[in-house]
Nucleic acid binder design. Structure first.
Length: 497
DNA sequence: TATCTCTGCATTTACATGCG
DNA sequence: CGCATGTAAATGCAGAGATA
């Protein structure tokens, strides 16, 4: 199936060549005609003609680059046509890699000869195996990709191409099959990516793939309005097996978590992950409680951006980072509960959506964005609720206590004032609804925090007493023993011993 | 020996509770 | 929701034991 497209503004000229092709035995299976640039582009995209005869004068200067790019992409052979035998036209023909330039009026003989020759060449290309490899290469297959066969991947570069949406793999595969690489790769479609294996390029391999990679990204983005990520493993060291290249590429692909889609990643520039402590420290937890109860969008936003913008490798391990993000979600969950937002389906669904994003989204800044939007949503919802006066007094009180337990002068009166109730009434509520008195509650929270300090710090018992809001260290010891069954010292020794 | 930790006891004060 | 009142918590001081 060989297709010809004739693009000429003059309809007589178009019809004339078409007639010639059909009247003489020039073996085109299909002949299309285009009268202007729009039509030319549309037919190229739909039909991907093998041969294009194009009147160079029809393309306006400002569209030339655009048209040229598409011709390179869709068409295998170009023949230029022009009424004016100028230097500019000749240059254009060269830019298109035209096999011939016809100056009007054109002799039918030349047309026949040139078209015949071109069709013959194309037929030969077709009859050869699609990706003919030099005989020196050992045939490669899925086995060499997935199993560690020695010496099979030598001299080959590997590109792992992953689209943003995996359902586009078949489309991507087809795209890559038709894509005009300078050197044709062998293609291995996988469930979430396509692996391209290239013969070795010399001398400047990195630069070559850099250019080829960006060209590929742009073409795909332009055609399908979608982003790809490319991971390139250069041939470089001939001792690395194809399998290892593939595994390394998969690992380097994770870098996308930090730098986003539409990127070309070189495996040899990839660095090991940095280990981080994924959990929020008690101070950070308190900071979150504070920011949320202050409804401070600005502080939350800058906290998130400061915490989660990584520009330079080494990047922290994505898995640990996800855990850290879920710790933040836990704070949000509490906030939802204390403002009764979890009772509303809307917030509940949103919460689960964000949770899924934290677990599975391939790009960090999207997760951060999702979380921030969710927080803003929650803050607005909570504000609305508190205006309606429906937020839970008790939860508010508990939160207030959790934030201020470190102050030794924390009193029932302060908390009552904060939630806008009479101290006596609040005391009532606490013992009725929570089954515990104000003093008891504060003590629980303080001792809980003390346990953490005893385990995690080397602070003296006096200092800890002070930090949890108990001025008298003697009393702290006694209280601790009463609640925990042993004195603070013994507790610390047991945990650290 | 100085410092830290824990216990006992007296005193003050903040809280829990019953009732209007 | 708030007042009055008995009660329990918190404090301060003294001193003993543990630890470096």
């Amino acid at each position: 199936m060989v297709k010809l497209l004739i693009a000429d503004r003059d309809s007589k000229e178009r019809e004339g060549i078409k007639w010639l092709v059909q009247a003489y035995p020039i073996p085109f299976d299909q002949v299309e005609l285009a009268g202007d640039v729009e039509e030319l582009i549309r037919i190229m995209e739909q039909e991907t003609p093998d041969v294009l005869c194009i009147e160079l004068d029809m393309v306006p200067r400002d569209q030339w680059e655009e048209v040229k790019k598409r011709i390179h992409f869709y068409v295998r052979r170009v023949i230029g046509l022009t009424a004016e035998a100028t230097f500019e036209r000749a240059t254009q023909a060269i830019e298109l890699h035209a096999v011939d330039l016809w100056v009007k009026p054109i002799s039918p003989d030349r047309i026949k000869r040139m078209l015949n020759q071109t069709v013959k060449q194309i037929a030969e290309e077709h009859s050869r195996p699609m990706f003919a490899m030099p005989a020196t290469y050992t045939p490669i297959s899925y086995q060499t990709l997935f199993l560690d066969y020695q010496s099979l991947g030598e001299n080959r570069s590997l590109i792992l191409v992953q689209p943003e949406h995996t359902e586009r793999i078949p489309l991507l595969y087809q795209f890559l099959q038709e894509y005009p690489f300078h050197k044709q790769p062998e293609l291995f479609p996988l469930s979430d990516a396509v692996v391209c294996i290239f013969p070795r390029v010399q001398p400047d391999e990195r630069k070559y793939f850099q250019q080829e990679g960006h060209r590929l990204l742009n073409e795909w983005a332009q055609r399908y309005d979608d982003a790809l990520t490319l991971v390139i493993h250069l041939a470089l060291d001939g001792s690395i097996s194809l399998h290892h290249k593939y595994v390394a590429a998969k690992q380097a692909l994770e870098t996308r978590f930090f730098i986003g889609h539409q990127q070309v990643i070189f495996v040899d520039e990839y660095q090991e992950w940095r280990r981080i402590d994924p959990f929020l420290t008690p101070e950070e937890q308190r900071e979150w409680i504070q920011m949320l109860s202050d409804f401070s969008k600005e502080r939350i936003q800058s906290w998130m951006h400061q915490q989660f913008s990584y520009r330079e490798p080494p990047f922290p391990e994505p898995g640990l980072l996800r855990i850290r993000l879920t710790s933040i979600l836990a704070q949000l969950r509490r906030f939802m509960q204390s403002h009764r937002l979890h009772e509303e389906a809307m917030y509940e669904t949103h919460y689960h959506r964000v949770f899924a994003s934290v677990l599975y989204s391939p790009v960090l800044f999207r997760i951060v964005q999702d979380i921030l939007l969710f927080i803003f949503d929650l803050l607005e919802g909570a504000q609305e609720r508190s205006l309606q006066g429906s937020s839970d007094v008790l939860e508010q009180a508990v939160q207030y206590i959790e934030q201020h337990f470190a102050r030794s002068d924390l009193s029932l009166a302060q908390v009552a004032e904060f939630v806008g109730r009479n101290p006596t009434y609040l005391s009532h509520l606490l013992s009725q609804k929570k089954g515990t008195s104000f003093r008891e509650l504060v003590a629980q929270i303080r001792i809980g925090q003390a346990c953490r300090y005893l385990k995690e710090t080397t602070w003296t018992i006096q200092e800890i007493a002070d930090r949890i809001g108990i001025r008298n260290p003697n009393y702290f010891s006694r209280l601790f023993k009463e609640k925990m069954g042993c004195t603070p010292r013994v507790f610390r020794d047991q945990k650290n011993g």
